[in-house]
Design a protein around this nucleic acid. Sequence first.
RNA 1: GUUCUCGUAGCUCAGUAGGAUAGAGCGUCCCCCUCCUAAGGGGAAGGCCGUUGGUUCGAUUCCAAUCGAGAACACCA
Length: 569
Amino acid sequence: MYLEELKKIVTYALEKCGFVIEARIIISNRPDLCDYQCDDCFKIAKLYHKNPIAVGEEIVKCLKELTNIEETFKDIELVKPGFINFKLSDNFINKYIIVMNNTDHFGMQKKEKDELFYIDYGGANIAKPLHVGHMRPAIIGESLKRIINFAGYKTLGDAHLGDYGLQLGEVIYGILRDFPNTDVQNIKFDIAYLDKTYPAMSKLCKENEEVLKECQKITKDLQDGNPNYVLLWKQICEISIKDLKRLYAYLGVDFDFWYGESECYPIIPEMKEYLEHLGIVEVSNGAKVIPIKEATDQKELPPFLLEKSDGASLYSTTDLACIYERMQRFNPNHILYVVDKRQSLHFEQVFRAAKKANMTPNTSLEHIGFGTINGPDGKPFKTRSGETLKLDQLITDVKVAFLNLKETNKDMSDDDINKIVNAIIKFADLQNNWSRDYIFDIEKFSSVIGKTGPYILYTYLRINKIIKDIDITKDLTNNIYNEYDRNLRLKLLELESIITDAVKDRMPSYVAEYLYSLCVIVNNFYQNNYLTNLDDKQKKNDWIIILTLTNRIIKVLLNLLVIDIPTVM
RNA sequence: GUUCUCGUAGCUCAGUAGGAUAGAGCGUCCCCCUCCUAAGGGGAAGGCCGUUGGUUCGAUUCCAAUCGAGAACACCA
């Protein structure tokens, strides 16, 4: 929007000077000197074998000679080694503030092309309770989906439940052991039973090889349609999904599809036939594989595993089958996998196999490999008793910590408390770059001061209190009243480029960072511009417009971070 | 062993299509509630951006080496 216009003006000036290069205008990293800067003098100097300062002088001269240039820039200055510094005119800033204010999408252009992003971000396993490790894909994936959507692209979210792997064989083994003399039709159990059965069976399988073999056999038979196993499997899924939906609903995470791996099982034979037909399947140690090593590779890469030596399918099989199926059904332009980064080798294998099989000629496959949540020892977080922390427990802990902060917090409605708990957890997570591990600290997850979700909510609510009772009577004038006011308006303009970058890099943290800095600036404004009893009607009206726009943006960005706003704090 | 990722303030983290004086939060110290909720605002202290070289006008960012931490490495997911 506005940045394009600035770029166009400067590029035009460069052209007039005889430099054929597209100008790059960036937000100033010296706000004390300017609003925006252009560092192209160095590049041009090298390209045309000139002195950067001489180049800069030429460009600045050209710019200043353009007609009506003062309507865009208050000041253009060439500094030291070769930076061109720009200060925007009030006129220019307000022109775009008005555009943002008068459109429901803040003046951002709707995307013309119908790009579809298929986002796979659940990764929860049936029959296993959600633990802290499941929090990240849920939050990051949901936020990414909303950001991409907001930028104008189409999205589909898929929970991709782990409903067909070995863990199901293990749980079924446990059930058969616990209900030895009961007809399978009459076996009934609940979520609490499942919660304790999986960990117990998992432990048993690690200790006892025979049990493991039996579980593998059950897994294979289940895949082949053994009716008793299928019956139990259906009950496990039903109970488990109900509980998963409860927790995901608490987090505000929703999927377009609650598909599991099992969904793509019917298509596996067709896919295998397709792969065999291509002649890329080989047999290795009794298993069917697709070699994926390329000539340019330096490193060793294990082949893609299509079929185990006992004929059973595994994780890699279903992932490839899912790609095969998704391409047929939806033909997405991008498939994003929001999955723990420890699985990066797995995804490299799957992506290479898909590419080798020419399944995705015009589709990008991306692994959003987020880091693990670690304990103080640098290993994935465990509770004091050595177990993984359940997501339910984390939420409860955060809630208790919040209630204990202030006596009055206990008077808040449940709904408001839950919104704040969500804000604490999500903002603490999403402000990080997802590729990195972070250390879990319950104290950090109970803090409401500083760079936290509650700080953002508090800012929104205090601004809302000012603007809600004052009507806007006139359009925005062309004035900017002081530096706090100006800083706020400049920050508002940045919105579009933040969203664009967040989509490009798949980074919700950009949105979180911007939202926080916007709140810092608006709090600054708040503290220094007392508004309710202001005599200057015009100034008051202008400020109400600015604050209303600011709060509209804060609200939208909070939604992109999957955070809802409570009624009071 | 091979490959990959990461070393930034006391702590937890932002930041790189190479740019001017490296930013936050917490913690520490000081100041601000007659006035839109102080879950707020202002200020101070705190850094050889792991180390050593290289590339260049310029490197936290790119390259190499080195030290340190973590992860992955075919029939689990």
